[in-house]
Computed example of a mutant assay.
Amino acid sequence: MTDRLPSDHPSVETVRATLARRGRTRSRLELPADDRFPLTTVRLVLDGDTYHGRIERSREEGVEITGAYDNPRLAREHDGEDRLEAWRAESKIDYGRSVLVDAVESGFLYGVREPGERVVYDAVESPDEGLAAIARDLDDG
Rank of each mutant, 00 (worst) to 15 (best):
D82H: 06
G67A: 02
G67F: 02
S58F: 04
D128P: 12
G48K: 07
G67Y: 01
L74V: 00
V15Q: 02
R43H: 08
E30P: 10
R22M: 13
R97T: 11
A123V: 11
S27Q: 00
H78S: 14
R136G: 09
E13G: 10
E13M: 08
T25V: 10
V101L: 06
H78D: 12
E30R: 08
E114I: 13
D82Y: 03
L39V: 11
G67S: 04
R22Q: 14
G67V: 02
D140V: 07
A20N: 13
I134P: 08
V15F: 04
R136K: 09
D49F: 09
V120T: 15
T40H: 10
R54C: 11
L74N: 11
V63Q: 02
T40R: 10
D140N: 11
P10R: 06
R88C: 05
A132W: 04
S106N: 03
E125P: 14
D128V: 06
T18W: 05
G23E: 03
A132Y: 02
E90K: 08
D122E: 15
R22V: 12
I65T: 07
E81R: 14
R76F: 03
I65A: 03
L44R: 06
E77T: 01
F37N: 06
D34T: 07
D94H: 07
D139I: 05
I65R: 06
I93A: 07
D122A: 15
V99H: 03
A123H: 12
R43K: 14
D82N: 11
G48W: 02
F108A: 14
R26G: 09
P72S: 00
D47E: 12
T2R: 14
E56Q: 15
R59A: 14
D79F: 13
E61T: 13
I65W: 02
P38G: 01
A68G: 14
A132M: 06
R76V: 07
E90A: 10
Y121C: 06
D8W: 08
R113D: 07
E125T: 14
